[in-house]
Simulated scan of single mutants.
Amino acid sequence: MTARVVLHLPAYMNARLAAGKPLLYSRIRDSVLARGGAVDLVEGFNGAGYREDGNLHIVENGHHQRVGVLNAATAYFEGFFHVDPVGIQAASRIGALPYDPTTVDGEAAQTYHANLQQRFAVPRLSRYKQPKTLSNLPQGALAVFLQGPAPQRNGQAYCSFETMVEAVCAGAGGRDVLVKPHPLKPELGAEIIAAVRAKGYRLTQTDANVHDILAVCSATVSINSATALEGFLHRKPAVLFGRSDFHAVVETVQDTAAFGAALARVLTNPPDYARALYWYFGQHCLDIQADNFDARLLAIFAEAGFDANRLGLT
């Protein structure tokens, strides 16, 4: 029996698909249909009730390890995606892959890094809407990026946001500390900052464009924010206080008392930013703008056991 591709999306995404958005799923649909395959749209996904049925199921924002199921979501940068049999973002299979920068083509990595800079850093674009006004910020500061409740909810954080900010302030070594609330959770960010200030710590709250902050900071700090990787576009190292799937190219702190030492290490021995980004995004994520998007997508399907023949693709 020829297998079908089943897209499991929230209702609002299904409604937008007719207009060609969201981009990942419209591209998957169009790629499969253009090759003679079949695509079904289903609202949501019942993981507990799932039974293997011979079809390939792709689940938006999924976290399922099931035969015939791939999980999909944005991979930190706009236009990049995980389509993954293990999970998404911090839970993706990339986190279990070995990383050896000496095996990554340095020339290709430099070209790739320059292209990403032109795509995101030069126009000051990030995944969430950012101010267009240029901000005047202190050089060499530590940049702390807050997130929403997801890292704690998903068991990815090694401490609370408040404890993280306190640790950074205590271990800043005289550097200014800039703290940016998440654009979608400004109230939560303001509460965290107020609580830290109430304990006597000195910091500066900022809503500046992410790229303005990254341009002047000495390092980024977060639980596992995309800004850690965006910082690589500006050649700024990262310290995380949570689990991630890019831990191989950052310093990760599980004990807040270890922050100072972790910061010293990453400032003294920063990663090869170009190789790290090329390895992560260029070799292990799907890029909606890449010429080989369809080929990479079909390779992921085949690796999951659904090659062109099984899907009836020409």
Rank of each mutant, 00 (worst) to 15 (best):
C285F: 05
F293M: 03
P271S: 12
T252P: 11
V5A: 08
F241K: 05
G20H: 03
L33G: 06
A141F: 00
R175G: 12
F281D: 06
G36N: 04
L263W: 01
R127W: 14
Y278C: 10
L17A: 09
A226Q: 03
A109G: 03
A219K: 00
H211W: 05
L184H: 15
Q156H: 15
A208C: 06
S160A: 15
Q130N: 03
K199M: 03
R265M: 07
F77I: 08
V210Q: 04
R66S: 11
K236T: 02
A195K: 13
A215L: 06
D287V: 13
L116G: 00
D30T: 05
R296D: 15
V253N: 04
H182V: 12
V5F: 04
E191S: 08
R243L: 14
G171L: 07
A262C: 12
P85T: 10
K199A: 06
L188K: 08
T256S: 15
M13D: 07
Y99W: 05
A190V: 10
N269G: 05
A167Q: 01
A15M: 10
V216K: 09
R265C: 07
V253R: 03
S31K: 01
N292D: 15
F246C: 10
L178Y: 01
R310G: 13
I88G: 02
S244A: 14
G36S: 03
Q117R: 15
N292M: 08
V250F: 08
P85D: 08
L17H: 06
D84L: 09
C217Q: 00
A194H: 09
R124W: 07
R124G: 07
Y50D: 10
L7Q: 01
Y25F: 11
V239M: 09
A73T: 08
A167N: 00
V42G: 09
L9W: 00
T163E: 15
R66P: 07
Y99P: 03
A11T: 06
A150T: 14
F301E: 01
E60F: 14
L17W: 05
